[in-house]
């Protein structure tokens, strides 16, 4: 949504807001972990999955906005002008024109965000203490620290299981990208 606005609706300060998002690409979450932790604890969100989901979403937004905006900018604006002449609102333009044309970039954003959240370790390490809520990297590390040197088969099985979904998604979406592109190629 934000990317669409930044790309296709003009307003004052647009460049600044975009810059504000994109600048965050250079600042890793580790830098502001302490105040974020305080914030999450104050909001009673520590030790809850929501307390991870929200920061993960916020953390992956800059890249998503950057990728989507760059892609939207390249879509032929004639399509949208035509739709507007036919009386489409911005919402309908986004739903009926922009999104269907954006499958390749949407897959890109999906795979990136998925892999990031799946592998994320640091926030989970700081926020989650309840073993029932541990994410995989956390559990993996705990398992390893507690019993390596004794149970190699189990450890390797866990390792293999933990990377299997990412590998599958990677292989699967690789094809999706090509299919998405040939289907969505525009001749305007």
């Amino acid at each position: 949504m934000a990317a669409f606005a930044l790309s296709r609706i003009s307003f004052r300060g647009r460049a600044w807001i975009y810059l504000a998002f994109v600048t965050l690409l250079t600042i890793p979450v580790q830098i502001y972990i302490i105040p974020l932790y305080v914030l999450i604890v104050r909001a009673h969100l520590s030790d809850s999955l929501l307390g991870l989901i929200l920061p993960y979403t916020a953390g992956s937004l800059p890249l998503a906005i950057f990728l989507l905006k760059t892609y939207f900018d390249q879509l032929p604006s004639e399509l949208m002008d035509a739709a507007r002449l036919d009386g489409c609102s911005n919402r309908m333009i986004l739903l009926k024109i922009v999104l269907p044309l954006s499958r390749p970039v949407l897959s890109t954003v999906t795979i990136f965000t998925f892999v990031q959240s799946w592998n994320e370790f640091f926030l989970a390490l700081v926020f989650i203490h309840n073993p029932d809520l541990q994410t995989l990297p956390l559990g993996l590390q705990a398992f390893f620290v507690n019993q390596y040197e004794t149970q190699f088969p189990q450890l390797f099985a866990t390792l293999a299981l933990s990377i299997a979904p990412v590998v599958l998604v990677y292989l699967f979406l690789q094809k999706q990208f090509i299919a998405g592109l040939t289907a969505g190629a525009v001749k305007a």
Binding site: M1, A2, A20, F21, V38, P62
Partner: peptide, 22 residues
């Protein structure tokens, strides 16, 4: 445009910019 930007701005503002400032 504010309506379109609000969700992203709120999330990033509250969970990224606010912590950096604090």
């Amino acid at each position: 445009f504010l309506v379109w930007l609000a969700p992203a701005l709120l999330l990033v503002g509250a969970l990224t910019y606010l912590p950096i400032l604090t």
